[in-house]
């Protein structure tokens, strides 16, 4: 393995380690629960992404052919991270925030976390 490949792999590993550390440090440092939702996204995107890019370069330098299936993990995490963040925020709202304190939803229905869906749900094109 040549020097440039080793240097690139080491740089990506160090960057991803720092971002993984920062993500969890923010988890214990930030004050509010919804603020803490922000910190671990660094570990999800840059942390795991850096490790996977480093391993792609490593196996390319070792075996000579590029392997793509590392990118599957990155793609999966990129698809699921917003969904989990949305669900955690909704769980926090449902248990810790009073529904009357929120601003008006500007429709005839309330917010979905607090109110059941209406009986005669209009079609999506009518909303």
């Amino acid at each position: 393995m040549n020097f440039v490949a080793e240097l690139l792999i080491s740089v990506f590993l160090v960057i991803s380690g720092i971002f993984g550390f920062v993500g969890s440090y923010g988890l214990i440092k930030l004050k509010d629960s919804l603020q803490r939702l922000h910190a671990p996204t660094k570990a999800t995107t840059l942390g795991v992404g850096g490790v996977l890019i480093a391993s792609m370069i490593y196996f390319y330098a070792k075996t000579g052919h590029l392997s793509i299936h590392e990118l599957l993990i990155t793609l999966f995490l990129f698809l699921t991270a917003p969904i989990t963040a949305n669900f955690i925020a909704k769980a926090y709202l449902a248990r810790n925030v009073n529904g009357e304190d929120l601003p008006d939803s500007a429709t005839t229905y309330g917010w979905s976390v607090y109110d059941d869906p209406p009986e005669n749900m209009p079609e999506a094109k009518d909303v």
């Binding site: 991803s16 993984g20 993500g23 969890s24 671990p40 570990a43 999800t44 942390g47 795991v48 490790v51 996977l52 391993s55 590392e70 993990i73 995490l77």
Partner: peptide, 8 residues
């Protein structure tokens, strides 16, 4: 997330 990174 951290365990995924450790496994890789």
């Amino acid at each position: 997330i951290n365990v995924i990174a450790l496994l890789v």
